[in-house]
């Protein structure tokens, strides 16, 4: 009920403000009934409740994602974390800001840790054998369990973790899970790519983000992406 109520609220507000002529609206809650004319240049991607399981389990790790997509890339995003009374927002080429009831501050990521001291933020759920093998063989072994992609990326912005990895199994994260968190991370100076370094694309023919996604505060991003590819190749060879 919370999920649907918030989805309806966000859609009504955005549609009232921006209309249907220039904008398309895609929400996790309404996606299946919308299939699918997305010819607008500007597309709102909305996840009204990211981290549903954590919301139900009362961990506090849930978030709202709102992203505006142009030419398959995010140009504006909001990640709201209600239990922290915080929203993170970013626009393309203008940086990331953290807003609380007390203040608004820019966020710039800096770290001088060694590769072994980096901390991975991982899911409590969504685990499978291939991902577990990868996590066990990376050079950085510190892990912190956080729910919701938005909250995971917020943990990196708060410099309580350094890396987030998504590796699809039978299912994959959807555009609305990733787009808003991506922009708040990259505008703060982080990186969010496929394992091969290529950028993510949204509002394509497939709403799923298949494969390996690597998000980090940028230090060692390329090295660790290459290492992840090597470890997965090793795993796949072992399974043959």
């Amino acid at each position: 009920i919370a999920d649907i109520t918030v989805s309806q609220y966000i859609l009504q507000r955005l549609q009232a403000a921006f209309g249907d002529e220039d904008f398309t609206y895609i929400s996790e809650e309404t996606y299946k009934s919308q299939l699918q004319e997305q010819n607008s240049q500007l597309v709102w991607l909305i996840d009204p409740l990211d981290g549903t399981k954590d919301f139900i389990d009362k961990t506090g790790d849930y978030a709202i994602h709102i992203a505006l997509i142009q030419d398959h890339r995010p140009i504006l995003s909001i990640v709201a974390v209600p239990e922290a009374e915080t929203i993170y927002y970013a626009t393309k080429d203008s940086g990331t800001f953290k807003e609380t009831p007390k203040a608004t501050v820019p966020i710039t990521l800096l770290t001088e840790k060694s590769i072994e001291d980096l901390t991975l933020v991982v899911s409590r759920s969504h685990r499978h054998e291939r991902l577990n093998y990868l996590l066990q063989h990376l050079p950085c072994q510190n892990q912190k369990a956080v729910g919701s992609v938005g909250c995971k990326i917020a943990t990196i912005l708060e410099q309580k973790a350094d890396i987030y990895i998504s590796l699809s199994g039978k299912s994959a994260p959807k555009d609305w899970d990733i787009a808003a968190p991506e922009l708040i991370l990259t505008e703060a100076g982080g990186s969010f790519t496929h394992f091969d370094g290529s950028p993510l694309r949204y509002n394509t023919d497939d709403i799923n983000q298949w494969g390996g996604l690597f998000a980090s505060n940028s230090n060692y991003h390329q090295i660790l992406c290459q290492e992840a590819q090597r470890i997965l190749l090793e795993f796949d060879n072992l399974k043959r």
């Binding site: 609220y9 140009i75 504006l76 909001i78 709201a80 929203i87």
Partner: peptide, 27 residues
């Protein structure tokens, strides 16, 4: 204008957060 769009989206984000927060705490 992206700044104007952002101002509306931020307000929507805060209000949506209030709604979820209320459900989460059963208030």
């Amino acid at each position: 204008d992206l700044a104007e769009i952002l101002a509306i989206a931020r307000d929507v984000g805060w209000k949506a957060a209030d709604i979820l927060h209320s459900y989460y705490h059963g208030t």
